[in-house]
């Protein structure tokens, strides 16, 4: 999803500008020195012997930024973290990737990193759920598990000699079906305790990948996974299953029901609105936007219009100022 510029009318420009200024004033009080642009000076205590890290430079005894971003301090290390950049993995991150290659005993996944991530056959649960050693037959059947262009959810395991390794050792990881994948800048997704969300009232699953890939799809129960995997297990001996034998009529019956699809589209548009405005993407904000559009009885497509985006910005400014007063 590429960045979309909103076609704003004059009134909407003024309203959006006011809301953004209000948001900036709220955040400025807390982190007045957090964001920097190139050549901004960074306040440091020289007596402590600071370490100048990435994105900083020494100029006449003063530490200045060489990047636009946010200042981070880790003990004595001071560095600037650029916002508009590719995803930088950390161990334990939940990521969503797309299979680009099936190699020997592994899949290569594109996760918006500067190189492909590796998911080993031994780093994931087998479809039948049995904990056993992988055999040569399993290697031959790797395309029955994930094939090219499949969307996979996994966890960052760490860096090895041959690149970044992922693992999918839990039932919640694995292939993602019946939904759509959205791409947002990675800095909009904060690391949280929970990245898997099941919106029960809507019947949809929401996975916020730390790499900016967000999956919105139909809810899948763990039990259904077991049953479905058993069905596919019976075909595991077939190297190239014939997936095109499903007729058009049978395919239509398998479509997501319209009510669930409406909620999937509404949630996806909520994420798109947040990405357009550059706001943090968290579950409560997404839910708030969905409820706002439902209360206004707004058409799903109109959520992407200028008027609703400006309204979301204004509501977010109100919400943060009320949270500010509550403290």
């Amino acid at each position: 999803m590429r960045e979309i510029q909103l076609p704003l009318s004059q009134t909407q420009k003024v309203r959006l500008q006011k809301a953004l200024e209000q948001l900036e004033s709220l955040s400025t009080k807390v982190n007045s020195d957090a964001s920097v642009i190139i050549a901004d000076s960074i306040h440091v205590n020289h007596e402590d012997g600071v370490l100048k890290g990435h994105g900083t430079a020494d100029l006449n005894g003063e530490v200045v930024a060489t990047l636009c971003g946010v200042v981070e301090r880790v003990n004595k290390l001071v560095y600037v973290r650029a916002l508009r950049s590719r995803y930088k993995p950390e161990v334990g991150d939940i990521v969503i990737g797309r299979v680009v290659e099936v190699a020997q005993k592994r899949w290569r996944l594109e996760i918006n990193y500067n190189q492909d991530a590796v998911l080993l056959l031994s780093s994931m649960n087998m479809p039948d759920g049995v904990q056993r050693r992988r055999t040569a037959v399993d290697e031959l059947n790797m395309r029955c598990i994930f094939e090219e262009n499949d969307v996979v959810c996994a966890e960052v395991r760490g860096f090895q000699h041959d690149g970044l390794h992922l693992q999918a050792r839990s039932r919640k990881y694995g292939k993602l079906n019946r939904g759509q994948l959205l791409t947002v800048p990675p800095y909009l997704v904060k690391r949280q305790k929970q990245h898997f969300h099941h919106l029960e009232e809507f019947g949809i699953d929401l996975i916020l990948g730390c790499n900016g890939f967000i999956w919105v799809g139909e809810h899948v129960e763990a039990k259904d996974d077991m049953i479905e995997d058993q069905v596919s297990q019976s075909d595991s001996q077939v190297l190239f299953p014939n997936k095109n034998c499903v007729s058009l009529e049978e395919q239509e019956k398998n479509y997501t029901i319209l009510e669930t699809r409406k909620y999937i589209s509404r949630a996806a548009n909520a994420v798109r609105v947040l990405s357009t405005l550059g706001f943090n993407i968290t579950l409560e904000i997404i839910k708030g936007i969905i409820d706002l559009s439902l209360s206004m009885n707004l058409d799903i497509h109109d959520m992407l219009g200028s008027e609703f985006c400006v309204l979301v910005a204004e509501k977010e400014a109100e919400r943060r100022s009320s949270m500010k007063k509550r403290r």
């Binding site: 797309r98 094939e147 262009n149 499949d150 969307v151 292939k175 993602l176 079906n177 019946r178 939904g179 759509q180 994948l181 799809g217 997936k243 395919q251 239509e252 398998n254 479509y255 997501t256 319209l258 699809r261 409406k262 589209s265 996806a268 548009n269 798109r272 799903i300 497509h301 992407l304």
Partner: peptide
């Protein structure tokens, strides 16, 4: 992926596209 293409085709068949 197959799931995504199926979702897109279903959306067009049901007159409710992804957005």
């Amino acid at each position: 992926s197959l799931g995504e293409t199926h979702f897109i085709q279903g959306g067009i068949a049901q007159d409710l596209r992804c957005d």
